[in-house]
Design a protein around this nucleic acid. Structure first.
Lengths: 230, 230
DNA sequence: CAGTGGTCTAGACCACGTG
DNA sequence: ACGTGGTCTAGACCACTGG
């Protein structure tokens, strides 16, 4: 038998859908039939189909069978960039530069984001991420000191708070929000642009189980974009 | 035996990593050992591990085994929104409003994006997407008329060009670019804001095999954001 | 309640890349 | 060379849900 792996079958079925053989909304043959047609086990077909479902191309329901989606869920996976990697990938040398650093009581909106009482002590850090001396992004970060007290002693001139946190409080989960925001005075100065310029912005809050660790806003230099394949 | 599915094992292993039992860079036990430990078949462990690898938490190599990633690849999947769905999800009623419509020779930068000769005829459409009469987003789209000639006859006052295209030229692949851009006069007027306001922007080009179909820029009203779980 | 997808198992062979 | 992950198979049972 030739090479009939699940990827081959996945591709074959994808092409049959794209060619119009099975139109949007149509029910496609069951796993048993497809297995017979392709001469492989149902397990293999099942795997191929589950992948296609993950891709958003088909919908599967027990008893009802598998259908081609009316409107395919276009989705795309973005790797959340690590600023140092972005900068180094362009050939420049990375350096974090601390613009502001303090330990204070949480402002209300930050306390809310981190699910803390409003008088909790937080570590506040504003960092410019430099690539060959030019500002690539400005990061405004708040860290929950009960979750990561040692950050006060971290050498944040050498390693960014982000990477330090990854090592100390690894593998938390989190929220990400992509948006556009206007440059405030601080960003305008850092990026050598005008106040109000459009900046690509990522907000990120991370936690481990029910302990909220950190929230930050990352504003990129004008012209920055995130690219992906659909 | 209790319920030991691949998801349970996936979760268990994830927790062992997050707890620090296996540190970043460490090699974790082979599939055979884990299968023995959890009392299930290797197939099941394999599936759990492949999922964790997809999540970017571990790295797997034949012969070398499975390691915890030094810096986990944080990645997140965004569903590319269909504007009509976004609007209707908020309870408003959707209506596309055509601002501009023409059939002309492609400007150079658009021809380049679509890999066409610069004198190719293109369909150009600017649409305001309305939710209860308010502009939610402005779409600037170019369609390759040799790929989708019938779009000229489509009832674009009722169905958006996007959804029409999905039906007629389904399941193409594409590029997506997220960025921030400044409102030009047209957007400023549509959104009742000032020229230069920061707008969240999605650029998208789609094709089927080697035929480029359409490219568009979608600018969202000020304050819009895209959210996801990390 | 019956048919479909979801999952598990035990065993097998293969492909890759490290040591 | 050989140990690890990648995959396939055949068969089985289960869970969900539509008719």
């Amino acid at each position: 038998m030739s090479t009939l792996n699940h990827q081959t079958i996945r591709k074959a079925i994808r092409e049959r859908i794209e060619s119009g053989e099975w139109l949007p909304g149509a029910t496609i043959p069951g796993e048993v039939d497809l297995a017979a047609e392709y001469g492989c086990s149902r397990t293999t077909v099942n795997r191929a189909m589950q992948n296609l479902a993950d891709d958003g191309l088909i919908e599967r329901k027990r008893r009802a069978g598998t259908r081609v989606k009316e409107i395919p869920t276009r989705q795309t996976t973005f790797k959340i960039p690590i600023v140092r990697h972005e900068i180094e990938a362009s050939g420049a040398s990375y350096r974090p530069h601390i613009l502001e650093r303090e330990t204070i009581k949480a402002p209300n909106h930050i306390a809310a984001r981190l699910h803390l009482k409003k008088d909790a002590k937080l570590f506040h850090l504003v960092t410019a991420h430099l690539g060959d001396g030019r500002v690539h992004a400005v990061e405004d970060r708040w860290v929950n000191l009960s979750a990561a007290p040692d950050i006060i002693k971290a050498p944040l001139n050498e390693i960014s708070a982000n990477e330090w946190l990854i090592r100390k409080v690894p593998y938390s989960s989190g929220d990400v929000i992509f948006s556009a925001s206007a440059a405030a005075a601080r960003e305008a100065e850092a990026f050598e642009t005008k106040i109000g310029s459009a900046l690509f912005t990522i907000d990120r809050t991370t936690w481990l189980d029910d302990v909220y660790i950190t929230t930050m806003t990352l504003r990129y230099r004008p012209g920055y974009n995130l690219q992906s394949r659909l």
